[in-house]
């Protein structure tokens, strides 16, 4: 199915957010996630099923003012 990760459309076979994170190489990375604008905590990623056209945000610590 087609989803959007960090603003970029892409195809995925991942069924859950956890699977997607692992597929993209973020499995053990210090990242936070949101799906369609809603925060999804680390323990909830496995239960968060993905649907076509979902918009996923994967963010990490960065410099800020």
């Amino acid at each position: 199915m087609q989803i959007v990760v960090n603003g970029t459309p892409q195809a995925t076979d991942a069924q859950t957010l956890l699977e997607l994170c692992e597929t993209l190489g973020f499995g053990k990375a210090r990242v936070a996630t949101a799906v369609n604008g809603d925060f999804v905590a680390v323990p909830a990623r496995a239960a968060r099923k993905l649907c076509a056209d979902d918009k996923i945000e994967i963010v990490a610590p960065r410099q800020g003012g």
């Binding site: 960090n6 603003g7 993209l24 190489g25 973020f26 053990k28 990375a29 210090r30 990242v31 936070a32 945000e57 994967i58 963010v59 990490a60 610590p61 960065r62 410099q63 800020g64 003012g65």
Partner: peptide, 22 residues
């Protein structure tokens, strides 16, 4: 110090490096 979060595009490495610095 103030920090932020931004989309990660390098498999978590940029964020991890900044986290280590903090």
């Amino acid at each position: 110090i103030t920090v932020s979060l931004r989309r990660e595009s390098a498999r978590g490495q940029d964020g991890q490096r900044f986290w280590d610095l903090i």
